[in-house]
Design a protein around this nucleic acid. Structure first.
Length: 493
RNA sequence: CGGAAUGUAGCGCAGUUGGUAGCGUACUACGUUCGGGACGUAGGGGUCGGGCGUUCGAAUCGCCCCAUUCCGACCA
């Protein structure tokens, strides 16, 4: 009874509600008083920090450097690239004044009309414009190229409808902005970074992703090509988890960024930009969690191993503390993050449930019985299986188990995706199949009109034109016109 | 911005012939407990989303406003 009261809504009942409850109950984040914004709580932020660290290492390895650009963008900058402004104009928060004052009628504090800005400032929805206005000053010669900058920042997009981590008005992300002398080099960079993202998703998050190219209508505003990684959530919907854009010379032309090449000729710079956000945390949650709560991949879990003692009295706790301290020390020396929870204000059963909810990959328990037999109970979060293991060399056992869990949850997610991905041949079949969720591989004639029609009639969009996989030509399922290859359709977040 | 629903203790909720607010949980103290979300006793906590109205009397009836959630349109 008590368990039911504290439990989660079953996933099958309402996935959205389940997701929200999980985020709040696992102590990751909560809604802020400001519409559409989110408070990321320490446990949620710890996951983000782990992600940041891993990604940042990968960026450094690929030759990138971090920098920081301003939060506020003059309105005129945003409007320099026509498609870009059209894409973002509808969701920009605007700063119009720089001072408040007390109302003369004593009704409180008001915006001082005398402090109106001559030019309004936009709170960045993305930083291409402010960065390219800066790059103009940095670039004169081919010797100044390439510029490979990344920034960790927050951005704001005034979304109509928000959802913790997946879509909030303000979100944290990283955005890389690179400038190159040649088209080839910029394109190479774009592909390189989508590969970094897919490696990160698969190896750290244990989330399998489909790499591909966006159709023209789904492309980033101002890009010539948008590469994406698409993940499948457990309800069969797709989540765009990272993008890398080949921007061509669009921003260079808009901001007049030219360089002198080796032949002393003026050329516009070629560009890429790429980003992933705290949405990845949403992807993590929706890829692995079960009705007991989060399931975190060991590589990103803030706590990888939790140890819970079970004791009848202080004396027994003392003995357990002593025994456990050696194990904790050894695990830590192996680089495993361990929490020994011997707090006496919660009973063991409560702790078990709580750490399961928080997705801690491995739980070790030591009680009176174990103390006598020199064993511990080991539980793995992904399968909830329990085993009794000797304390001798338990550290190595746990270390290996963490790796096994990492691999297992990836495989589980991959199996689910494989099972939920299928070819469809006709539009009638498509309409039936899309209701079941999952990814549908179908032929498309390549026109925005057909894409639009399918979207309006089925709510499914082209998630991407996959880079890998079946490339045999066929006929569009809607119009019967020739299709170069199958593309991937799904309903998406 | 359309459609639906909901606002009562930190959280989850009950509260219809209108009669002055209660349950679970959480919290505080003490004690007993501790191998899967413990129990007992005592205690603190509410301008019932806001405003106006009807009435001797409103959480309850009426009107207006506000907020949130879900479903659409928009999007990483």
């Amino acid at each position: 009874m008590a368990k039911e009261l504290k439990g989660l809504t079953k996933r099958s009942v309402n996935y959205s509600q389940w997701y929200n409850e999980l985020v709040v109950k696992a102590d990751l984040a909560e809604q802020s008083p400001v519409r559409g914004c989110m408070v990321i709580k320490p446990y949620g932020y710890a996951i983000w920090e782990k992600m940041q660290r891993a990604l940042d290492d990968m960026f450094k390895e690929t030759g990138h450097e971090n920098a920081y650009f301003p939060l506020l963008i003059p309105k005129s900058y945003l409007s320099k690239e026509a498609e870009h402004v059209e894409g973002f104009a509808k969701e920009c928060a605007v700063v119009t004044h720089y001072r408040l004052k007390n109302a003369e009628d004593g009704s409180g504090i008001i915006v001082d009309p005398a402090a109106k800005l001559e030019e309004e400032l936009i709170i960045r929805p993305t930083s291409e414009t402010i960065i390219w206005s800066t790059y103009k000053k940095w670039i004169n010669s081919y010797r100044d190229l390439p510029i490979l900058c990344n920034q960790w920042a927050n951005v704001m997009r005034w979304e109509m409808r928000t959802r913790l981590f997946l879509r909030t008005s303000e979100f944290l992300w990283q955005e890389g902005h690179t400038a190159h002398a040649t088209r080839e080099e910029a394109e190479e960079e774009t592909v390189k970074m989508i590969n970094v993202y897919s490696n990160f998703a698969e190896n750290f998050m244990a989330v399998p992703v489909v790499k591909g190219v966006k159709s023209a209508t789904e492309r980033f505003a101002g890009a010539l090509d948008t590469y994406t990684i698409e993940a499948m959530m457990q309800d069969g919907k797709a989540l765009q988890s990272g993008t890398s854009h080949f921007l061509g010379q669009n921003f260079a032309k808009a901001f007049d960024v030219q360089f002198v090449d080796k032949n002393n000729k003026m050329n516009y710079v070629w560009a890429s930009s790429w980003g992933v956000s705290t949405r990845l945390i949403g992807a993590l949650i929706m890829s692995h969690s079960d009705d007991n709560g989060l399931v975190l991949p060991p590589k990103l879990a803030p706590i990888q191993v939790v140890i819970v003692p079970i004791y009848r009295n202080e004396e027994q706790l003392g003995l357990i503390n002593e025994k456990v301290s050696g194990i904790v020390a050894k695990l830590k020396s192996m680089g495993v993050s361990v929490k020994y929870d011997n707090s006496d204000n919660k009973r063991p059963g409560f702790k078990f449930a709580e750490y399961e909810l928080k997705g801690v990959p491995v739980r070790l328990v030591m009680g009176g019985r174990d103390l006598e037999s020199n064993t511990m109970e080991v539980m793995r979060r992904d399968t909830l299986e329990k085993e009794t293991v000797s304390c001798d060399n338990i550290e190595a056992y746990v270390f290996n188990l963490l790796e096994e869990i990492q691999a297992n949850i990836y495989q589980k997610a991959l199996d689910f995706r494989t099972k939920s991905t299928r070819n469809v041949e006709s539009y009638d079949e498509f309409k039936v199949e899309i209701e079941k969720g999952g990814f549908l591989m179908a032929h498309w004639d390549g026109t925005p009109e057909t894409e639009e029609l399918i979207k309006n009639e089925t709510k499914a969009t082209i998630r991407c034109i996959p880079l890998d996989g079946d490339k045999t030509p066929g006929k569009c399922m809607v119009t019967g016109k020739p299709s170069a290859r199958r593309v991937m359709f799904a309903r998406a977040y």
